[in-house]
Write a protein that binds this DNA or RNA. Structure first.
Lengths: 220, 220
DNA sequence: TCTAAATTCAGGGTTTTTCCTCTGCCGTAG
DNA sequence: CTACGGCAGAGGAAAAACCCTGAATTTAGA
């Protein structure tokens, strides 16, 4: 895969200090690495990617403004499938990791790993094409063994349902929500009941908590 | 203050990769700095602080497991008031910054600043004792000018009120909450009404959202 | 094309929430 | 002693939320 002596890298992370630190660190643990460029987020990455000189490995954060890690990886697989992504995030949530693996990333590191592990990951991805730790495979296996128990099931919602959920996370009454959505209050009644059943909640408060926990609404 | 040629530092951050990166970065931007030790969080810091050789400046994160930045800074001012704290966090929320400044930290940097600013901050704190950027003072001035508008007011709650709020963030009815708190439903009525007025919310959902936004309840 | 599922809505009922006012109780500052 | 504020609680009523069953329309699949 790698025809140069160096491993061409690029970094996508919105925290400059972390990025710069990571760069000096990488130069220490693996001098063969060459950092082509850095980007603040997915949007920034799109403008900085030069098809004539693509990075071999992309170190990517997940939480970023404007265009996050998920969207960026999705965009990359469609536009530059040859680029291998190594996620470096502080998120340790199982479904986040699993979702990233489904999107085809070549490795997933938490930001609290030892520096030498970063070096190993880079070397492994450059030579073998991937780097999966026991931590990551452990999460993966656990997900396979417990597919959807404990309400961790990933529900999909129609546009109307999403709109309703967002409006339910407000101080509007159902009548006012119906008004905003240009639907009869009785229809809203229906949405509520079906969502209560689907999400196994018993009250509007339960629905709001579900939405918050699953990032269906922006809290801040 | 500083009797040595070197500036003695210590780092408190739960992300090893960031910490290590920061160290190599600091050694680049300010070779006079000497890192005494690193810690994962406040608890870890307590065990690693050696009274015979205290760091002059402590670089500290806010979001950490077990003992977070706020608690740690509070503990430091009580036990080691001579140590100067420089917060390095990705949190840019106004009241977080203001709260930290109230606790007496000597500087506040976001993780997306340029490395050279970190060097300037360290040099400034070592010589002048503080480093306050326009960004930070701007937030401070804004808070002074708008003391309590827009719901940013920091309310204090009695134990009963806190218990009620937490139980309100569940699928329990008020009667069940009254039962759990061993109070009359009518008393719960009173708590609800006074909280609605204090927090300027109009419904239980509004109360729940307030609690979530202000981290009164653990969401995850 | 026929059927099944999803969508939208109605009627009518129960439960819960919300909002009033008003009563004691207790501590404490004047 | 007494006025005042805070806390616990009561009665009652209106509004909102919740929960059925049923029915027309539209959409999707076999």
């Amino acid at each position: 895969m790698n025809h140069h002596f160096a491993i061409d890298l690029a970094l996508v992370d919105d925290h400059k200090l972390f990025r710069k630190g990571l760069i000096t660190l990488i130069e220490h643990v693996n001098p063969k690495c060459k950092i082509l460029f850095e980007a603040d987020d997915g949007i920034d990455l799109q403008s900085k990617l030069n098809p004539k000189s693509l990075p071999e490995i992309l170190l990517m954060d997940i939480n970023m403004p404007r265009m996050n890690g998920f969207e960026t990886v999705k965009w990359l697989t469609e536009n530059y499938p040859s680029i291998k992504v190594l996620v470096v995030s502080m998120v340790e949530k199982e479904d986040t990791i699993v979702q990233m693996l489904k999107l085809g990333v070549r490795g997933y590191l938490c930001k609290d790993v030892e520096p030498h592990e970063l070096g190993e990951a880079l070397a492994s991805i450059a030579s073998k094409g991937y780097y999966y730790t026991d931590f990551v495979t452990g999460k993966l296996v656990h997900t396979l063994q417990n597919p959807d128990t404990s309400g961790a099931a990933h529900h999909r919602f129609s546009q109307h349902e999403m709109d309703f959920i967002k409006l339910a996370c407000s101080e509007l009454t159902y009548v006012q929500i119906a008004d905003k959505m240009c639907l009869s209050p009785k229809t809203i009644d229906g949405y509520r009941n079906s969502l209560f059943e689907k999400l196994e909640v018993k009250s509007r408060v339960g629905l709001v908590l579900y939405a918050v926990r699953n990032n269906l609404v922006s809290v801040e």
